[in-house]
Amino acid sequence: MYFSLVFSSIYFFYVGFVICTNATKKIKNLFCLAPLFFISAFRYQVGIDFNSYVNYYFDVISGSDTYMGASFSWIAKFGHFLGFNQQLLFIIYSFLFILFIYLSINEIFKKITYSNEMLYLIIILFYSFLFYMSLNQIRSSLSSSIILYAILSEKRIKSICFVLLAVFFHSGSIIALPFVLFYKKINQKLLIISFITVIFIAFSGLLSHLLISAIELFGGRFLVYVNSSYFSPKVGFEALYTTCVLCVLFLITTYFSFSIKDSRYNIFIKIIYFYLIIKAISIDVLIFGRLGDMLKPMVVFSIVVLFIAYIDLIKKINNIHQLILGFFILLLFSISILNTVLGSNIIANEAGNDFSYDYKFNFCIIGEVCPK
């Protein structure tokens, strides 16, 4: 735990120091993300799913069948063919994940005006909410970062190609294709009406009934999920909590959409609405919750962009923006430290009840591992 705690504390100041230098915005972005690649790529037995991926790796190279898909198998076999051990798997996934986050942040500043505050908040929000999640479910994390870049690219053919690349790593990435194809033609009011409609009928069971009927009609590989827990609804407090969170985020997004008139921010507003609709469907059909997570990086970055845009608006009214910005950074720091102390997404819950865990590294990528 102590390594993670010290790293998180130092990282907040490190990012601030890098951003305050006279380097170009791309160099700042690169140096801010580089330490995250290092502690992700060479981690050992860090992440709830770490040992599962190691087992899948050995299954692949032994010729056993896995459900991990062709991309995972190719990476595992490629590394083994070159003489590397299982650590290369995490190095490759970490490199690609950080690479697409880096490219996506650069794309953001092609659309809107760069500011040090914006870059700082994007990096810190990414670290606090998304980075440690990427230590688990490495396939979906990589796919979500590719989707982020695909959406921000905006050029339709390029975006479609990168969504298909994301699908190659995780089939659930297909959820982003409708947005990439049609978001320019979809009116924000239609998205607002769609969310309100879905949130009202989500408790009726109608959505799951229609979806199951469509799957049974067309068949395909998703038939295996129809009678599983993936198609069950959320119940009790979980359903109520999800509804409340979605409605609060919906109201905040709607407020931003009416306050920020600049058309450059439309894509950020629309993707949040689209995400909210997918998450609202998950109240009735659980699997849409995981599909919606594919859009989470884009939503997190969009919230930062809209937040800073709104701060810029109220600068013209009073000086309270400095207080709001400071409070927001302090809140992010507190959340990051709390996640670190609890071992959130770092270790299994049952192993972390005493709040003590090790963040190990392995730098031996050829032959036997030698964790430190």
Rank of each mutant, 00 (worst) to 15 (best):
I39Q: 14
D65N: 15
K25S: 12
F84Q: 08
G47N: 09
F12R: 03
D49A: 11
F38T: 01
F78N: 07
V46T: 09
I27T: 14
F38I: 08
G69C: 05
T24L: 06
F13K: 13
G16N: 06
Q45D: 13
Y67A: 15
Y57H: 02
L36K: 02
I27M: 13
S40T: 01
F38H: 00
L30S: 02
G79H: 07
I61S: 04
F72W: 03
L36W: 00
W74Y: 09
Y67R: 15
A41V: 01
Y14T: 04
A70N: 13
I48Q: 05
S71D: 05
R43N: 09
F78M: 09
S52F: 15
G79L: 04
V46Y: 02
D59F: 09
A34C: 08
S71W: 02
F17D: 07
F81H: 14
G83S: 03
F84Y: 06
V18D: 01
T21P: 01
Y14W: 13
G47R: 04
F13I: 09
Y53T: 09
D59H: 12
F78G: 05
Y57C: 01
A23W: 14
D59W: 14
L36E: 00
D49C: 11
I39N: 03
L36N: 04
I19C: 10
F12N: 02
F58H: 02
K77I: 12
S71C: 13
G63P: 12
V18Y: 10
T21K: 05
D49S: 11
I27E: 04
H80Y: 12
Y44F: 12
L33H: 01
V18G: 10
L82W: 14
F13R: 10
W74P: 04
V60Q: 01
V60G: 08
S62W: 07
F42H: 03
F42Q: 04
D49R: 08
S40C: 12
V15L: 10
S52L: 08
Y44G: 00
F13V: 05
N29P: 03
Y67V: 10
A23M: 13
K25T: 11
R43A: 08
Y14I: 07
F58A: 12
T21Y: 11
F31P: 02
V54Y: 12
Y14C: 06
L82A: 12
W74Q: 13
K26C: 13
K28E: 00
G79E: 02
K25C: 08
T21C: 10
I48H: 10
Y44S: 07
L36M: 01
F13C: 11
Y44N: 14
